[in-house]
C-alpha cells in the first residue's frame, strides 16, 4: 500500500517541477530617458502582473536611465536594451541607422510609436513677477531663462524648436524666428546638459526667472517642492514632444525576448497605462483618457515638429549639428 503513495508523491513532484519549468523567468531591459523614471517605476509592476497572468512567466524589468541621446549612444555601443523609450525620435532613428532596428520602426505601433507626448511650458517664480506669458517675453532684456542644452538633451531641443515654431506658426519668417531664438538663448546664463539639471539649477540653486521644460517635469517639481512656490505658465503656442518607443530587434532576437518586449510596449496603449501616464502629466494618446484630464493637461494650441521643420531629422541637421543654426546663434553671444 505504501508503494503507490510514494509513487504518487514522486509523480506530484515531477508535475510540480515541470510546471515550474514551464513558468520561465525572463528579463528585459528598458533603456529610457532621464525623467521617465517615476512613470516606469509604477508601470513596470502592472506589466509584470499582466504577463504572469497571460503566460505564467515571471518577467523582471530592468531600468536604465540617462540623457536620451546618451542612452541611444549606449545601445549603439552594445548596451543590451530590449526596448528603448526615448523623448525624441532622432534617438530611435540612430538605432535604425546602425541597423539595430528597421527604418520603419515608427509604423509598428499606433501614433508613430508614441504612446504619449509632452510639451514645452514655462515655470516661473510665484506670482510671475516678471510677467512672462509668451515665447516673445523670454527674449526681453533682463529676463534670465533656464533651458537645457539643445545639443545634448531632448528637453532643450523641444524648447528651442517650440520657440522657433511659435514665430513660423504665427506667419513669421525664418529670419524673425532666428532673431527671437537668438535673443532667448542670449538670456540663458547656464546651459545644463539635461532636463533634470536645468530643474535643479532653477529650483535648488534659484537661478533664473523662468524654466522652460517638459510639462511632466513641471508636475514633478510641484509635487516635490510644493505647488505654492512656483506658477505654471502655458505659452499661447507650443510644440508636441512625442515620446517614441521601440523594441530593439537585434537584441530581442538574440535574447529571444521579442514577444515579451513587444507586449511591454503594446500595453503602454491600454487605457490603464494611458491613465497612469496622465497621472504623471504625460499627455495620453488615448483621446478618452485625455479628455478626463483636461484640468491638469489643458487643451493647448500645439504644433508638431514635422509641421514646421519637415521632420525631426531635418530639424536636427539644420539646427543642432556642429556649426548648425544653434551653434551660430549661441557662439554669437
Amino acid at each position: 500500500m505504501k508503494f503507490p503513495i510514494k509513487r504518487l508523491a514522486l509523480l506530484g513532484i515531477v508535475v510540480m517541477l515541470s510546471n515550474a519549468a514551464f513558468a520561465a523567468d525572463v528579463s528585459i531591459l528598458n533603456a529610457s530617458y532621464d525623467v521617465s523614471r517615476e512613470f516606469y517605476k509604477k508601470y513596470n509592476p502592472t506589466f509584470v502582473k499582466y504577463w504572469k497572468q497571460k503566460t505564467g512567466d515571471n518577467v523582471t524589468i530592468n531600468q536604465s536611465h540617462g540623457g536620451s541621446s546618451k542612452q541611444a549612444r549606449a545601445v549603439v555601443d552594445g548596451l543590451e536594451a530590449d526596448v528603448v523609450t526615448m523623448n525624441q525620435s532622432i534617438d530611435v532613428d540612430i538605432l535604425a541607422q546602425k541597423q539595430l532596428i528597421p527604418v520603419n520602426w515608427a509604423e509598428r505601433l499606433p501614433n508613430g510609436s508614441a504612446p504619449f507626448s509632452s510639451t514645452s511650458i514655462f515655470l516661473v517664480r510665484h506670482g510671475n513677477p516678471k510677467g512672462i506669458r509668451s515665447w516673445a517675453d523670454l527674449a526681453k532684456p533682463g529676463i534670465s531663462v533656464i533651458i537645457a542644452n539643445p545639443k545634448t538633451s531632448g528637453n532643450g531641443r523641444y524648447a528651442y524648436l517650440a520657440a522657433w515654431g511659435s514665430v513660423i506658426k504665427q506667419g513669421g519668417k525664418a529670419v524673425q524666428a532666428r532673431e527671437l531664438v537668438g535673443k532667448i538663448f542670449a538670456n540663458v546664463p547656464v546651459l545644463e546638459t539635461g532636463g533634470r539639471g536645468a530643474t535643479t539649477t532653477f529650483v535648488q540653486r534659484e537661478i533664473g526667472d523662468v524654466l522652460v521644460t517638459f510639462e511632466n517635469e513641471v508636475g514633478l517639481i510641484k509635487q516635490e517642492y510644493g505647488a505654492d512656490k512656483f506658477d505654471l505658465v502655458y505659452p499661447p503656442l507650443s510644440i508636441v514632444a512625442e515620446l517614441p518607443v521601440s523594441i530593439v530587434d537585434k537584441v530581442v532576437d538574440k535574447r529571444g525576448t521579442r514577444k515579451v518586449a513587444e507586449a511591454y510596449l503594446q500595453q503602454l496603449y491600454t487605457p490603464a497605462a494611458q491613465e497612469l501616464a496622465a497621472q504623471f502629466e504625460l499627455r495620453p494618446y488615448d483621446a478618452v483618457i485625455a479628455k478626463k484630464h483636461l484640468a491638469t493637461l489643458p487643451a493647448l494650441k500645439l504644433f508638431t515638429v514635422s509641421e514646421v521643420f519637415g521632420n525631426a531629422q531635418q530639424a536636427q541637421t539644420e539646427h543642432f549639428k556642429d556649426g548648425g543654426v544653434f551653434d551660430q546663434l549661441y557662439s554669437r553671444k
Binding site: A74, V76, D77, G78, L79
Partner: peptide
Amino acid sequence: FGAQGWFGHWLQAHDIKLLF
C-alpha cells in the same frame, strides 16, 4: 569593446559581455 568598437564584433559573436 563597444558593439561598434575594434573587438566588439568578436565579443558579440562569442557572446561575451564586457561593456555595460
